[in-house]
């Protein structure tokens, strides 16, 4: 396969409290390639290091050692400003607790990444409404997050994650705070985005059932990737 992976990791490690007696290593020797259009899940128990891995993938945190290329760019050399630009353009976050900004309407929340991308107000509103329609929330675009149910909040959050057409959507336990039914709806939305929009999605979850819905499942345990199962291909 000659395709350039969206995410390429080589021997990535993450340590905390370096040089101190309580030095803690969370990730060991992570090697990983994720290609465009894949729907990958990363499964692991809590404390396994999956969130740390996601933060590194999402450029919210830096690895201690190893190589991480995003769309072929080595991220270890980038400064804060460049990282912000990449987060803005290339990565869409979906969080467990939604992380919508309170007191701003759903529309304004979806506009946020567009605002930081420097888009004009008119274009922002246009694009944000398009995204809100995509997630089926057009009748509630003017509501504050406090007026929305969990499922609705997560749909708005997904619309926001899609705003700048990122190379990759990172979803960290997106159904963790939702009941089974609304969680199902959110998962269906991810499937729809994957199939219809061809989005690359990385889903982090502790639930093997959710993970089994994806076409590729990475299992992480004690900071190491212990299995990489691709449906239809086997391990």
């Amino acid at each position: 396969m000659n395709r350039v992976p969206v995410i390429h990791m080589e021997a990535v490690t993450k340590k905390y409290y370096i040089g101190e007696p309580n030095e803690l290593q969370i990730l060991f020797d992570i090697g990983l390639d994720i290609y465009e259009g894949e729907f990958v899940s990363i499964v692991g128990a809590s404390g396994s290091g999956k969130s740390t891995l996601m933060n590194i993938i999402g450029l919210l945190d830096r690895q201690t050692d190893g190589k991480y290329l995003l769309n072929g760019t080595d991220t270890s050399q980038l400064d804060d400003t460049e990282l912000s630009h990449i987060r803005n353009k290339e990565i869409g976050f979906v969080f467990q607790n939604f992380n919508l900004i309170p007191k701003l309407t759903a529309l304004k929340n979806v506009e946020m990444p567009l605002l930081y991308a420097g888009m004009s107000q008119r274009k922002r509103t246009e694009r944000a409404m398009e995204l809100i329609r995509l997630v089926g929330m057009e009748d509630r675009y003017s509501h504050d997050p406090s007026e929305l149910s969990g499922g609705h909040k997560q749909r708005i959050a997904i619309a926001r994650a899609m705003a700048n057409q990122p190379s990759i959507i990172l979803a960290d336990e997106p159904t963790g705070a939702l009941d089974t039914k609304t969680g199902r709806m959110v998962m269906d939305l991810f499937h729809k985005l994957h199939k219809e929009e061809g989005k690359t999605i990385v889903l982090i979850t502790h639930s093997p059932e959710l993970a089994s819905e994806t076409e590729r499942m990475l299992t992480i345990s004690d900071g190491r990737i212990v299995s990489d199962f691709e449906r239809g291909k086997g391990e």
């Binding site: 400003t81 992380n99 900004i101």
Partner: peptide, 16 residues
Amino acid sequence: TREIGVRKALGALNGD
């Protein structure tokens, strides 16, 4: 603080 974190995750620069 959380809002600031979210804004940064969404691409806000330190300067913004």
